[in-house]
Design a binder for these strands. Structure first.
Length: 482
DNA sequence: ATGTAC
């Protein structure tokens, strides 16, 4: 498929989408020539141009090397809006899975101990962590959903799940203050009540990894990572609750856009000018859903560490599992950025499939990382590797403090199913020494490594562009899929 | 991503 938009190469890593048609700012795609071919074929570049036509947009529309087509906005995209110049909030720029994100723990368990108990740990994780479509665990029922929607991981810490000290190591301190639980509808609540503490399906996973390489010893030490060490990665979001919030926002967004006289080049870009009742209601609901996701990942990690302890025949309190960081990659946040030379301004940054990648010095960072830059956690695919990066100055200068969020899909789910069978994928993973537990064969095939771009290439682009540098590389030993 | 179409 030919891309209908003009694109100009800037250098080896940057491609400009110049202002054309209804665009008011340019787009910038970060990719090498190889990745760029996939991006153009997929049509993600056209979506970059569409986003650049929204009112009040500032700077540029950014696209990370893992970009692919999404609902309205591309996944792997960043866009910032000026509240004083007609700027909007658009749910499509955040994604259905509000606050989808990744949580990383360093585990004080030896590689040999994991290797010797791999099957038992995998089984215990599968038993202890509910996974798959709509699946929940009823033995822990958190009745006070309002408190979780308002307080996120903070509320869980009060319940003894996670600690006060952990909260600083979660973006937004584990809770967005702007949340209003009353803005989350009844159906969303019903879905959330049953699903908290469950992993979900699709690309969500829980992994035990080995740190196979350290690139930046100082940053690794700062983050509590060492070569040969073991980590646990949790990738999940706000489940059905966030999905419902997003879905229900559409009529109000279309209404608000019409009222404001915004001509949408794509209905999926439905949006509301910041400050309107529709925009504020959505932002308050989005924040509540984001808090649910922070709590969800905290509970998932808690249950997983319990399961690991059980498999190793010990108690949870004897497992050392410090939190490294918990990041979100589907959210809109108020942040101050230099929007033009010499002008700093508070703007609404939409990140959809993009991770915050703040450089040293930002006050939002936890004290212990402030002089280093933030950990940027980039999951790859279940058969190869994932990365921990560190935010760099280039991100502040070029991308509103943002980096990629993962490998990015190469094959659609349907295409993946035509190319392999569940057993062949499991066999290949087992041959690499990876213990896989999945709740459905479909999930395994759809998520096979070949369905994804090589995350090493994606990360390489981000690093060479000065957005975030590699700190450590993680290889999976145990994978639990939805 | 998602009780994958109320």
């Amino acid at each position: 498929m030919k891309d209908p938009f003009r694109i100009e190469p800037i250098d080896e890593l940057r491609w400009r989408v110049p202002i054309q048609q209804k665009m008011t700012v340019e787009g910038m795609i970060y990719a090498d020539a190889t990745l760029m071919k996939d991006i153009v074929r997929d049509g993600g570049a056209g979506q970059v141009a569409n986003v650049a036509s929204l009112p009040g947009i500032v700077g540029r529309v950014l696209a990370m090397p893992d970009i692919h087509r999404g609902y309205g906005f591309p996944i792997g995209g960043v866009a910032a809006f000026d509240p004083d110049n007609g700027g909007v909030v658009s749910p499509g720029g955040i994604g259905f899975d509000i606050n989808c994100g990744v949580r990383l723990h360093a585990l004080g368990i030896d590689y040999e101990q994991i290797e010797a108990n791999k099957g038992a740990i995998a089984d215990a994780l599968q038993r202890g962590v509910p996974a798959g479509m709509g699946v929940a665990r009823r033995d822990v029922r958190l009745d006070d959903l309002d408190a979780i929607l308002a307080g996120g991981a903070r509320t869980l810490a009060e319940l003894g799940i996670g600690t006060e000290e952990d909260l600083e190591l979660i973006e937004d301190g584990g809770a967005l203050e702007s949340a209003d639980p009353d803005r989350v509808g009844r159906r969303a609540r019903e879905r959330g009540e049953d699903q908290i503490g469950s992993l979900g399906s699709g690309n969500h996973f829980l992994e035990i990894d080995r740190i196979v390489e350290v690139y930046d010893r100082d940053a690794a030490e700062c983050f509590g990572l060492r070569e040969g060490g073991i980590t646990m990665l949790v990738h999940s979001g706000s489940r059905g609750l966030g999905h419902q919030v997003c879905e229900e926002s559409t009529p109000a967004m279309l209404r608000a856009a019409k009222k404001a006289g915004i001509e949408l080049v794509d209905r999926q870009l439905a949006c509301a000018p910041i400050g309107t009742a529709e925009a504020e209601a959505y932002l308050a609901a989005m924040a509540a859903a984001a808090n649910f996701a922070y709590a969800n990942r905290a509970l998932l990690a808690h249950r997983a560490i319990e399961a690991i302890a059980e498999a190793l025949g010990t108690r949870r309190k004897f497992i050392d599992a410090p939190l490294v960081y918990d990041v979100c990659h589907n959210i809109a946040k108020w942040e101050e950025h230099e929007i033009s030379p010499g002008t700093r301004k508070r703007v609404l940054v939409h990140r959809k499939g993009a991770t915050r990648s703040f450089a040293p010095g930002r006050e939002e960072l936890p004290e212990r990382y402030r002089a280093m830059g933030q950990p940027v956690i980039i999951p790859g695919d279940m058969g190869r590797y994932s990365y921990v990066l560190c935010g760099m100055q280039g991100a502040m200068l070029e991308t509103f403090g943002s980096a990629c969020h993962g490998a990015g899909r190469l094959l659609s789910r349907a295409e993946a199913k035509n190319r392999a069978t569940g057993s062949s994928v499991v066999k290949a993973l087992n041959a690499k020494g990876i213990a896989l537990r999945a709740s459905s064969v479909n999930a395994v095939v759809e998520e096979m490594p070949e369905a994804y771009k090589d995350v090493a290439e994606v990360v390489s682009v981000v690093e060479r562009a000065g957005i975030a540098r590699r700190v450590a590389k993680l290889e999976p030993m145990i994978v639990v899929k939805g």
